[in-house]
């Protein structure tokens, strides 16, 4: 595995943002990370759990899973494919 396959190139702090803001921030930021690398979205909005994977499917990117940040906030990982 190349280093960028597992390290997060950019983390977006979307805590406190209501839907669809986290997805908007993700769409604006994805072009700024290299193809193949990971972008993380910290979001406490409950809709993000459904909408970030849906965004990945619609935009041809890869949803790489959810983990918990240090404070317990869901952290969604997205890999830029194109």
């Amino acid at each position: 595995m190349t280093p960028e396959a597992t390290t997060v190139a950019l983390e977006l702090d979307c805590r406190g943002m209501a839907c669809p803001r986290p997805v908007i921030e993700l769409a604006k930021a994805i072009g700024g990370v290299p193809v193949g690398s990971l972008l993380a979205v910290l979001a406490d909005d409950v809709a993000a759990r459904t909408d970030i994977p849906a965004w990945c499917r619609m935009r041809g990117q890869e949803y790489a899973g959810e983990e918990a940040a240090a404070d317990g906030t869901p952290r969604h990982l997205v890999r830029r494919l194109s």
Binding site: A47, R49, T50, D51, A54, M58
Partner: peptide
């Protein structure tokens, strides 16, 4: 909370 129907289908909710 988003629609539990859209959530269960795994489709965009916003």
């Amino acid at each position: 909370a988003p629609s539990h129907v859209l959530e269960a289908m795994g489709v965009l909710t916003h």
